[in-house]
């Protein structure tokens, strides 16, 4: 079982020059949940997820992880706790899938040691979860877009992080692979991890996330269960769209229908 992580975000602002990319963002998040970050382009989703990964400094406000300021954690401990999946899928050298997954183990390996059995087990689990076991000897540069997206997610999972921060992990994937990748992330949240995922597909967000945070112009516009957040009124105000919503059990399918 994973030690339950806890984020406390209070009045977090991030500015680039004069522009407020995040403005007084406040929420808290704890393990065992899958949280979707949704909102239009430029709402600050990527900035928020990078700040939570410790890749961007907060301009003001507090950002605590397990009751301690995020920037006060040593980099190597943070690297073991947090797995960050970047929006960019660039891999710069044609290494094999296996090699790429070993990179995910870097925070756990000593500089001089080889790959331990424990590393190998974590890698095997990650390969199975993302269904890329058959690709392990392939060069990453020869994979299809969908295969690469899953391999990069496997790289994050191989690090056995308590927290997964994934920036648009399913963009550009076909419907089957979208469902597959999000199911994998959901499984991770079920064993006590905190999974925060940036999504543009609101139906998938509603289907897989326990909770949605809707960002607009750097502020939290709504925060709650998918049905509470994805109201017609909120969709019109934030995205400027009129949407058709269809209830499907506890979930709702959201179909943006016309631009208002």
């Amino acid at each position: 079982m994973i030690a339950t992580p806890l984020y406390d975000v209070d009045g977090l602002s991030v500015t680039y020059g004069d522009a407020h990319v995040l403005n007084q963002v406040t929420f808290s998040a704890t393990g065992g949940a899958m949280i979707g970050l949704v909102g239009p382009n430029g709402a600050g989703k990527t900035t928020l997820i990078k700040a939570m990964a410790g890749l961007l400094p907060a301009t003001s406000g507090t950002l605590n992880l397990d009751s301690k300021q995020l920037s006060a954690w040593p980099l190597d401990v943070l690297a073991q706790k947090i797995g960050y999946l970047s929006q960019s899928r660039a891999v710069h050298w044609p290494v094999t899938v296996d090699r790429l997954l070993y990179l995910g183990r870097l925070p756990h390996r000593s500089p001089w040691g080889g790959v331990s059995e424990k590393d190998q087990e974590a890698i095997d689990t990650a390969l199975t979860l993302t269904d890329v076991k058959g690709l392990r000897t392939r060069a990453v540069t020869n994979l299809s877009g969908g295969e690469l997206a899953r391999v990069l997610l496997a790289r994050v999972l191989a690090g056995e992080p308590q927290i997964v921060l994934a920036d648009e992990p399913v963009s550009g994937l076909d419907p089957g692979h979208r469902l597959q990748v999000l199911s994998g992330l959901k499984k991770m949240s079920n064993d006590g991890r905190l999974v925060i995922v940036v999504l543009h597909d609101l139906t998938l967000a509603s289907r897989f996330c326990d909770r949605l945070i809707l960002l607009n112009e750097g502020r939290v516009a709504a925060d709650g269960t998918p049905t509470d957040v994805l109201t017609k009124k909120a969709l019109a105000a934030v995205y400027g769209v009129e949407a058709v919503t269809v209830s499907q059990g506890d979930d709702i399918a959201v179909l943006p229908w016309s631009y208002v």
Binding site: G83, S86, A90, V91, L103, L106, P111
Partner: peptide, 18 residues
Amino acid sequence: RALDALTLGEDAAASLGF
């Protein structure tokens, strides 16, 4: 070691603790 991690780009390398 950082050069290996940089195979994944700067953000990912930083998130791996470098």
